[in-house]
Write a protein that binds this DNA or RNA. Structure first.
Length: 136
DNA sequence: GTTCTGACA
DNA sequence: TGTCAGAA
């Protein structure tokens, strides 16, 4: 199938399908015209890509993970021994990222709660009366 | 009309 | 990721 049909089948925008290919996640056959020709397997691959992206994996890792998983309904099952270890590392990276964000939020909380009176005044001054003639 | 590549927001 | 331009 060509691009238009692939977009319909996957629900993924044409621009993204090209991006996945550019990242080495897809390798559709090419016609002499240069047009891409996708297979049924490619449709399934796109579903896996979406799943892994949602899981927060970077495209570079997805490219390595893709040949090491099989689909079981809407679940992905690892088929390579090294893969699980790699995914564990990725999980640790995400855990670390969460910790950093929580720290950032904590600092902001301190700043926000330190001057509630200023926030109240600012709110009062920031809402001047709108002339009726200019109101939408 | 459909798809391609490249570039920019 | 979304969108547009210019070419085939």
């Amino acid at each position: 199938m060509r691009m238009k049909e692939m977009v319909r089948r996957t629900g993924v925008h044409e621009r993204l399908l090209r991006y996945y290919e550019q990242q080495g996640l897809l390798a559709p056959r090419r016609l002499s015209s240069g047009y891409r020709v996708y297979s049924e397997a490619d449709v399934e691959t796109v579903r896996r890509i979406r799943c892994l992206l949602t899981a927060g994996l970077p495209t570079a890792l997805i490219a390595r993970v893709l040949p090491c998983v099989r689909s079981d309904g809407d679940r992905l099952v690892p088929t390579c021994p090294d893969l699980v270890a790699e995914l564990r590392r990725e999980r640790e990276r995400i855990t670390a990222a969460i910790a950093e964000l929580e720290t950032s939020r904590g600092i902001l909380d301190d700043v926000i709660t330190a001057a509630p009176h200023l926030l109240a005044e600012e709110r009062h001054e920031a809402v001047p009366a709108v002339p009726a003639a200019h109101a939408a």
